[in-house]
């Protein structure tokens, strides 16, 4: 047996971290808007955000491959901009992961913002806080548990993705070969020892993460209990 290759582990952690950071920046305004809007387009957007929950990863991967490929609208733009292709690159994986994990970030945040309601924000407004200050000093601390859920779930979910990564990223060591791909390949090549180590590692990590999440009562609505 070869010595354990930790490359996929670091790559997965890097991918999950970058994805979560970008996701939070995107999901916060999106979740805020969904929680407060009275627009009729809300259900449409909610459905779009939830799509990755129900679509087979291969379907998502297929469309992403077309979009991000050198001939696709986003891919060709990227080629013109950077002279590199998005598909089969780390950057391509990040974009795919963001879309794939979007509901896991948006939904807990949206629920948290909805539970806070308008009342504390109105109180803050009458005390002189601008809308941005209301978000910063009232809404985001009250949504703390929603943020914890969003971070833990989208991090774990990104670590565990397989189908989308395979279709968009392939299996390039140190570039797109994340844990799940490495496990698949280890099994294909009957390298069960390595597959065991990676699988058990991912299993234990995911369990601990979710345990920590549930142990902090993340799913209780924020507010009164605080």
């Amino acid at each position: 047996m070869d010595s354990l290759d930790l490359g996929p582990v670091w790559l997965s952690l890097k991918l999950a971290t970058v994805t979560v950071v970008i996701l939070l920046a995107l999901a916060t305004p999106l979740a805020w808007w969904l929680a407060h809007t009275r627009s009729r387009s809300r259900p449409i957007l909610e459905a779009v955000v939830a799509m990755p929950l129900v679509l087979p990863p291969t379907v998502l991967g297929f469309y992403l491959l077309i979009l991000l490929g050198p001939a696709g609208p986003i891919g060709s733009f990227w080629v013109a901009l950077t002279d590199t292709t998005l598909t089969f690159s780390f950057m391509g994986l990040v974009i795919a992961s963001i879309i794939y994990s979007l509901p896991f970030a948006v939904q807990p945040l949206q629920t948290a913002f909805e539970n806070i309601g308008k009342a504390p924000l109105e109180a803050a407004a009458t005390l002189g806080a601008s809308p941005f200050q209301q978000f910063l000093t009232v809404a985001s601390p009250l949504a703390r548990r929603g943020y914890l859920s969003a971070i833990a779930l989208s991090f774990a979910h990104t670590l565990g993705e397989f189908g989308v990564v395979l279709m968009v990223g392939g299996n390039i060591p140190d570039k797109t070969r994340v844990i799940s791909i490495a496990i698949f390949e280890d099994v294909e090549t009957v390298n069960y020892a390595q597959a065991h180590v990676l699988s058990a590692g991912l299993l234990i990590f995911s369990f601990v993460l979710l345990l920590a999440l549930f142990a902090t009562n993340s799913y209780k609505p924020p507010g009164r209990a605080a």
Partner: peptide, 30 residues
């Protein structure tokens, strides 16, 4: 003129104190 620029104070029936802050925190907020 939005609410936060009107220089008004509102006392609501349901107090609307911020639950993530203690009493002093609520006062400091204002």
């Amino acid at each position: 003129v939005p609410a936060h620029k009107r220089r008004i104070g509102v006392v609501f029936q349901d107090t609307r104190l911020f639950p993530h802050l203690n009493v002093l925190g609520n006062l400091h907020f204002a």
